[in-house]
Design a binder for these strands. Structure first.
Lengths: 343, 343
DNA sequence: TTCTCTACTGTGAACGCTCACAGAAGCATG
DNA sequence: CATGCTTCTGTGAGCGTTCACAGTAGAGAA
């Protein structure tokens, strides 16, 4: 048997070739390929041997043409790509989804919808049925692409609770609010009472929920919720530094800061250092995400870990279930407090 | 006209529907779709109008079935995924490739070949013709997947010069050696003469070339090439720190260090700081990559910028040319010295 | 007129697969 | 012995395209 290693691409064997080789019909080969029900053991064995011998791989285009499925899913990132691509957690998510899908032999198509043109092109591509479903990373409110896909009945699973989309859309998210609660409780347990917060953007679910958790715990502990202690950021390092400066100016007696992302927390550490405050002695700092930035910071950050590997696995599971006809579902996964040197 | 926004997925219109709507035949519609030669202006106009009215999108599976092309390409990452996924430059590369392909209406399939099983599955998938070509990020020597693909005649473009693959494989790379030369010349120009180096792994082209550039410039400048000044790392932060310690122990009079990656350079800065050396006064430090780590470090790192956006664009250009029948090509792109505070 | 050439259009076949259906064989049941 | 049931197998049709080829119409040349 000569393999096609001469440089030119050989025509791959078809189901016909396998059938001839195994001495059965196309139908039998097809049945072996798809589950193997109603096939005699001897026939199945002959077919499998023929497949091995010929190196046959199913032609997915031909299959898709008749089944109407594409057996592929899209990984769609809308809006501010920079923010996500610089976030190492995004990488973990992308990798996790790719691997979880690979286990089902389903390729992942990476789709970046930045410009209006790209959005339209991608929407058309998806609604035309070229993917069976979409893993959506958007987290921005009122995403028109997401709404369009939902309306077109495309199976869809969002990462993080989508704002402004009806309850009809599946999502998988970490329990942001509970994570925030854990962190603030931790700060209270250290004896801190003037606890500031640098929030995330309030048009993202994470931003909203983390702030809500902060407020809840303070209220529950009977600590005054001083609005001077609340400043807003956009998850960037620079906004963390600026936020901490504002915080110090408005409430110099601050003795702890809950920061809604590790990247911002890095900025907060810088600002505190410049202001001559020691961490954690004078001010304790808690981050969120457990990103590499957390261990790169000095002192290393106490932070909230989101279970990104489980999130990606769940996203794929829910999407495949939905493609299989099940109803949309929401999955919330627990977070974990990681204690390090900044508190 | 009712759009399919009722929740269920409607059957999309076919080329037949468009033909009927436009009052022409399938053949004419097909010709309009593929370049529009030998089509009368009136027919073309009618077809385009019908396409707009029906919202027709070509069924790529049916097209692929007959053309034998898939009109998609794979982005293949082999071996140590962590190393790459943590590297922000990898993100720029992935994003750039996706966008460059999108401009040609070609989807990118993300493929991660970690385990042996995954490798085999992906190799089969690719050689079966499910993608037209592959963008390869491997940089590891003697990659069996790459060799297999090359042997099967799959169009292939590597990122970085592949070691041990014949000259038959295309690649796009930054000029590592020249970048290293620039950096070491820069250090020499500052008056430093005891210039150490923390190398990258010597089974990667980048690691080899950057060290070669270092040696070249020292030889050319007539500076003694003291082997005690050469220590090896693996691109990780930790290996940079360990390397610097070794360097200080073996050559306490070192007055500059060329580090083959920014991440390692961060580790070097930490080690120097702990040893009480001031940067850049006592020891100048030069990195490589211009990653976010470079500006996150203190002092901010002087480094070598690789043109990642151009690399991705070139990889796609070369791959598409090769899919179109052209011969393999090698492209080397210039680097740039970015001066900051560490030198 | 007739022929040739160019510009355009329509049609059947084919790509490789799955699906529905029909049929065969084996075996138990009436 | 017919009948039904179960298990298995083969066959034709068809998915939505493209491609090759045949055919038409109109212009210009002989």
């Amino acid at each position: 048997m000569t393999m096609g290693n001469t440089g030119g691409r050989r025509k791959p064997p078809t189901i016909h070739d396998v059938a001839r080789e195994a001495g059965v019909s196309r139908g039998t080969v097809s049945r072996v390929l798809n589950g193997g029900h109603y096939v005699s053991p001897t026939a199945a064995e002959a077919v499998n041997a023929a497949i091995r011998r010929t190196g046959y791989v199913v032609n997915r285009h031909a299959r898709s043409l008749i089944t109407g499925r594409s057996d592929s899913v899209g990984f769609l990132l809308t809006e501010p790509q920079e923010r996500f691509f610089e976030d190492p957690n995004f990488n973990v998510l992308l990798r996790g989804c790719t691997q979880a899908l690979a286990a089902h032999d389903i390729p992942l198509l990476l789709m970046l919808a930045g410009t209006v043109d790209e959005r339209r092109r991608i929407t058309r591509y998806i609604t035309a049925g070229h993917v069976d479903g979409v893993l959506l990373v958007s987290s921005h409110s009122g995403d028109p692409v997401a709404e369009e896909l939902r309306a077109a009945g495309v199976p869809l699973v969002a990462c993080g609770k989508p704002i402004g989309l009806g309850s009809k859309v599946s999502y998988v998210a970490a329990d942001d609010r509970d994570g925030a609660r854990d962190m603030v409780r931790h700060l209270l347990a250290l004896g801190r009472r003037r606890i500031g917060v640098v929030t995330g953007p309030q048009d993202t679910p994470g931003g909203v929920e983390r702030l809500a958790g902060y407020r809840e715990v303070l209220a529950e502990a009977g600590v005054e919720c001083d609005e001077r202690l609340v400043v807003s950021g956009d998850y960037s390092r620079a906004s963390g530094e600026a936020g901490a400066k504002r915080l110090l100016a408005r409430a110099p007696d601050v003795d702890a800061v809950f920061v809604a992302s590790d990247l911002m927390a890095q900025g907060v550490l810088t600002a505190l250092h410049r202001a001559g405050r020691r961490v954690p002695q004078d001010v304790a700092v808690g981050g969120f995400d457990d990103s590499p930035a957390a261990v790169a910071a000095s002192p290393e950050l106490t932070t909230i870990r989101q279970p990104w590997d489980r999130i990606s696995a769940e996203m794929v599971r829910v999407l495949l279930a939905q493609i299989g006809g099940e109803d949309p579902a929401a999955v919330i996964l627990p977070t974990e407090l990681v204690k390090r040197d900044s508190t």
